[in-house]
Design a protein around this nucleic acid. Sequence first.
DNA 1: CCATTGACTTAAG
DNA 2: CCTTAAGCCAATG
Length: 109
Amino acid sequence: MESFFQNVYQVVNLIPKGRVTTYGAIAKYLGSPKSARMVGWALNKVAIGSKIPAHRVVNRKGILTGKKHFSALSEMANKLTSEKIEIIEDQVIDFEKYFWDPIKELTVY
DNA sequence: CCATTGACTTAAG
DNA sequence: CCTTAAGCCAATG
């Protein structure tokens, strides 16, 4: 059974360490470019007790908009920093450079 | 069933 | 980059 949410979890789990992606990219990969909010919803549901690296998912500007949903406000930035990703003012530095697009990385041409 | 909300995105100014 | 407005869709009240 592959629900939208399950698919989200799967993709997020595939994000390489030290890389990040966006809600929109995931939504688009799943076939619903306009359902970025649902990706956020999925993560919100899973935020409570899950093994999913939700901290690697940010909005299109590379901003940690979901940090407040973590146990600690600094947890999200903290984890990203631990993966060698620079975070300043809740924003990923060189976001384009760390950006991991499931459409490009997971799609077989 | 209708209204509101939200870890979003895009377009226009 | 910032603000509005609109679109989006599941969950919640």
